[in-house]
Design a protein around this nucleic acid. Structure first.
Length: 212
DNA sequence: ATCCCGAGGG
DNA sequence: CCCTCTGGAT
């Protein structure tokens, strides 16, 4: 008998666009920067800023030598730009000094870097290195997990722990983007389109919508 | 006013 | 656990 998590995955897969992230990137370093920039922002906003940004700062070496104030200019249109600019430059310096300009590929090394928490590390490992060790829990995954009763965890970490139990491992690599896509298109934070929802019968908050 | 593919600090 | 950082979209 398929688990609830598996049912949800199977129902949503037909709506999946085949990608693992909506962010545009051409290598692991760009992916890393793009994911950092995407915090509390939309992928559309990030994709709009990254072309000019990566032209000016193509790699870790360029960013390690960059002036933080100049970096800010390129990401001003994205939220939280002060912290992000500082973190990106600090992170790039560490990559150059400690990793030869490359992005490390373990959870421990990644989360030790400035600006990279577990969510960002999960994406980098899974999408950038094909080393899926968890499921990235962002605002969409968090919200949908609660609404569907997959988890009642109060923190992203607690929710991830539940998801790893509820969702079979073969879906892990796709899980984040499948849920994000559903969260953006149907199960939105405000006024979710429940009548168009392919998993409405599996949802615990059928119809009525409060906070989550 | 509220939310967006969060992280870090208190 | 809570708060703050932030512009842009809705």
């Amino acid at each position: 008998m398929p688990s609830r998590g598996e049912l949800i995955m199977e129902r949503l897969i037909p709506y999946h666009d085949g990608k693992f992230v909506g962010l545009n990137y051409e290598n692991v370093f760009h992916l890393t920067i793009a994911v950092i920039l995407s915090a509390q922002s939309t992928d559309v906003a990030v994709n709009k800023a990254t072309p000019a940004f990566f032209e000016r700062f193509p790699d870790a070496k360029a960013l390690a030598e960059a002036d933080v104030e100049e970096v800010k200019e390129y990401i001003k249109s994205i939220g939280l730009y002060n912290t992000k600019a500082r973190n990106i430059v600090a992170l790039s310096r560490i990559l150059v000094e400690k990793y030869g300009g490359m992005v490390p590929n373990t959870m421990e090394e990644l989360t030790a870097l400035p600006g990279i928490g577990r969510k960002t590390a999960n994406i980098i490992l899974s999408v950038g290195f094909d080393r899926t060790v968890g499921i990235a829990v962002d605002t969409h995954v968090f919200r949908i997990s609660h609404r569907t009763g997959l988890s009642q965890g109060k923190t992203p970490n607690a929710v991830e722990k539940d998801l790893l139990r509820e969702i079979p491992r073969k879906y892990w690599k796709y899980a984040n983007h499948i849920l994000v896509t559903h969260g953006r298109n149907i199960c939105t934070a405000r006024k979710p389109l429940c009548t168009q929802c392919p998993i409405e019968d599996l949802c615990e908050k059928n119809g009525v919508r409060g906070k989550d």
